[in-house]
Amino acid sequence: MKFIWRIHGKEHDLTQRGLVMGIVNVTPDSFSDGGRYHDTGRAVEHALELATEGADILDIGGESTRPGAEPVSEADELKRVLPVIHAVRSQTQALISIDTMKASVARAALDAGADIINDVTGLRGDPMMSRVAAETDAGLVVMHMIGTPRTMQQQPQYADVVAEVCAYFEERLRVLEEQGIAPQRIVLDPGFGFGKTLEHNATLMQALPKLTVQERPVLVGVSRKSMIKQLLESEAVEDRDWPTVALTSHTRELGARIFRVHDVKPNAQALRMTEAILG
C-alpha cells in the first residue's frame, strides 16, 4: 500500500518515510507550554528551532483546543498567527500548517505562505472551510472529534469507537470529494483526547491499522496529552515527553505516517530508527 499526500500539487510519498509535525502554539493558554511562545518573536524562534531539529511540518495555531478552552475572535487569532507565518515562511522550506477552525483564518494563512489546513472539526465547524479547501490546493488534516473543545470531554460515549471513527472518516472523504476536494490531499487524524476517555484512546491505539481508510495516511497527535498523565499518574508535563517518543515509535509500527509532537528531536530520531528497522 502506498501513502501519497498531495500538497500544492506536489506528491509527498509517506510510504517509507513518515513526517514529524512540530507544534507551535501562539496562545497564552496552551495546556503544555504555558504560553511560552505567545510572543511573535519567540514563536518564530521556536518554529525555526523545531525545523532545525527535524520537523517536516510546523503546525502554527492561535486558538487553544485543550478541553474546556474558550473560543477566540477571528481578529485575535489572525493577529497571533499571521506575523509568525510570514516570518517563518521567509526563513525555512519546511511545510507550514495552520491549526484553525475558522475558514477566514485558514485562507489568510494560506495567502501568507501556509501549505496545510489542520482543522480539528474535520471541516465541519465553519461552513465556509470546505470552500476554502476546494478553492486551494492545500493539504488537509481531517480530525475526528465529538462536540467542541469546550464540551468534548463531558462524558463522551460510543457504541463502538473504532467503527464510529472509521465511519466518520468514510463520510468525510465522500462528502469532501463531492465538494471538489481530492482524497489525495487529505490525511486522517483519529483525534486522541478529543471527545474520548482513556479507554477510547487505548482502543483506538490498538486498532490503528484499521483506521487507514481508503489508503489515506493517519496522523497521530498524542504528545503530552492527559492520557499519558492518567497512565503514569503524574501531574508533571515534562514526564510526558519520553512516553510520547515511545508512542511515536509504536504507532509508526502500527502504520501511522504523521506525528504531531512538541519535542521534535527525540521523536524524529525515534521515527527514523523505527523506519530503519522496518526497512
Results as ranks from 00 to 15, higher is better:
residue 130 S to L: 09
residue 66 R to Y: 11
residue 58 L to A: 04
residue 88 V to G: 04
residue 220 V to N: 06
residue 106 A to G: 10
residue 196 K to C: 10
residue 61 G to Q: 06
residue 70 E to G: 03
residue 258 I to H: 10
residue 102 K to C: 06
residue 13 D to S: 03
residue 207 A to I: 09
residue 61 G to V: 10
residue 57 I to Y: 11
residue 204 L to H: 14
residue 191 G to I: 05
residue 186 I to Q: 00
residue 113 G to K: 09
residue 211 L to D: 15
residue 140 L to G: 00
residue 222 V to R: 05
residue 153 Q to Y: 12
residue 83 P to W: 14
residue 176 L to S: 11
residue 235 E to S: 13
residue 260 R to I: 09
residue 205 M to Q: 02
residue 146 I to M: 14
residue 250 H to I: 12
residue 168 Y to W: 11
residue 154 Q to T: 14
residue 22 G to I: 11
residue 239 D to F: 03
residue 238 E to Y: 04
residue 269 Q to C: 06
residue 235 E to Y: 06
residue 181 I to Y: 08
residue 278 L to G: 12
residue 106 A to P: 06
residue 247 L to C: 02
residue 220 V to M: 09
residue 138 A to I: 00
residue 43 A to L: 03
residue 117 I to F: 03
residue 69 A to M: 06
residue 272 R to Y: 02
residue 34 G to C: 10
residue 111 D to C: 05
residue 124 R to E: 10
residue 98 I to R: 00
residue 147 G to P: 13
residue 78 L to P: 07
residue 273 M to N: 15
residue 89 R to F: 10
residue 20 V to A: 13
residue 249 S to Q: 04
residue 257 R to L: 11
residue 105 V to M: 02
residue 36 R to F: 11
residue 160 D to L: 07
residue 193 G to C: 13
residue 14 L to Y: 01
residue 197 T to K: 12
residue 105 V to G: 07
residue 273 M to K: 11
residue 249 S to M: 09
residue 13 D to K: 01
residue 147 G to D: 14
residue 158 Y to P: 02
residue 71 P to D: 07
residue 143 M to V: 15
residue 36 R to M: 14
residue 235 E to M: 09
residue 47 A to Q: 07
residue 37 Y to E: 15
residue 220 V to K: 06
residue 195 G to C: 11
residue 66 R to F: 07
residue 8 H to N: 15
residue 131 R to I: 15
residue 12 H to W: 06
residue 185 R to S: 08
residue 229 K to R: 15
residue 207 A to Q: 13
residue 99 D to E: 04
residue 166 C to M: 08
residue 249 S to G: 15
residue 15 T to R: 03
residue 86 H to G: 08
residue 205 M to H: 07
residue 204 L to W: 04
residue 209 P to R: 03
residue 6 R to S: 09
residue 173 L to Y: 04
residue 19 L to Y: 04
residue 184 Q to D: 08
residue 1 M to W: 00
